Simulated assay, not measured.
Amino acid sequence: MQIVIAGASGFLGKRLVPHLRRAGHEVTRLVRRPPRAADEAQWDPVAEVVDAALLERADAVINLAGAGVGDRRWTAGYKRVLVDSRVDSTGTLARAIAAAEPRPRVLLNASGVGYYGDTGDRAVDERSPGGDTFLADLCKVWEAATEPAEAAGTRVAVLRTGLPLARDGGLLRPLYLQFQLFGGGRMGSGHQYWPWISLPDWLEAVVFLLDHDVSGPVNLTGPEPVRNAEFAAALAAELHRPNLLPVPGFALHAVAGEFAGEALSSQRVLPAVLTEQGFVFRHPTVRQALAWAIRA
């Protein structure tokens, strides 16, 4: 396939591009600066500028663009950045896809399990309603921005990603260092569910969705979400470190502000669509996922 990808410089994008190429696909990365390599093309999602000819040659578009949710405190200004960076990029690509002739056959657009809000102990899947938190509302408008592409006949799947596990990035990077320094433990009560997924399974799920006729929301999470206390215990066991120093909820709020509420929320999210479509997880348990992440 000829694949155009936005957000290729992020944690997941940097890993997805070589994975797609190893699978035999040709990849063009959209960048906001002047291109520096033959596989780059410039675009401007705010001004809605994207090369129409590039999209007309593409079989698929993957959009992972968006400011980092945990990169800064959630001031009113940064919350606007979080929304705009996702809606602008998605809307620009969706409208450009709709206008292309011929148009790409599929758009895989990032989203997140934040869509479901705090689900407590209740298991949820793609058929479950959205929540009422800031991240839930963000995901709703983010996903809605794909509508022009879908209305034009392009297959659209939204990737409601959980917590991808890799030692050198994402959620696991700060936790790995914390446990290595003998300072690890659960967050808050530890009763909240964490919807983890191994990085290889996330990558393979994206390739799977390129090749299978799946539309709508797809949860990219492992099949067995665990409570935060179980996650901390599994990580401590893999690292042969103690699991003794819990992080109180009030301390997280002091450091991270409103984002701490999301970190302490419970999301028991199940990958029903992937399972029903026959996707086979390489790492179906959190211990397997952590073992891969630590040793990779």
Rank of each mutant, 00 (worst) to 15 (best):
G7H: 14
S9A: 13
G10Y: 14
L16Y: 10
L30A: 08
L30Q: 08
V31H: 09
V31N: 10
Q42C: 09
V49W: 01
D51R: 00
A52Y: 00
I62F: 03
G66K: 01
A67Y: 07
V69R: 01
W74E: 00
R80N: 08
L82W: 11
D84V: 03
S85K: 05
D88C: 04
L93N: 08
R95K: 11
V106D: 10
L108R: 09
A110L: 13
S111Q: 12
G112S: 13
G114V: 11
T119K: 13
E126F: 15
G131D: 14
F134H: 10
W142S: 09
A145F: 14
A151P: 10
T154E: 13
V158T: 15
R160G: 10
L163F: 15
L165N: 11
L171K: 07
L171H: 13
L171I: 14
L172P: 07
L175P: 04
L177A: 15
F179A: 10
Q180V: 12
G183Y: 10
G184L: 11
G185D: 04
M187N: 11
S189T: 13
W202Y: 09
H212G: 05
V214D: 07
V218R: 04
N219C: 08
P223N: 09
P225N: 06
P225W: 07
R227C: 07
E230T: 03
L235V: 02
R241G: 03
N243H: 06
P246Y: 12
P246D: 08
L252D: 01
A256M: 09
G261A: 09
P271R: 06
L274N: 07
Q277A: 14
V280P: 00
R282M: 05
V286N: 09
W292V: 02
A296Y: 03
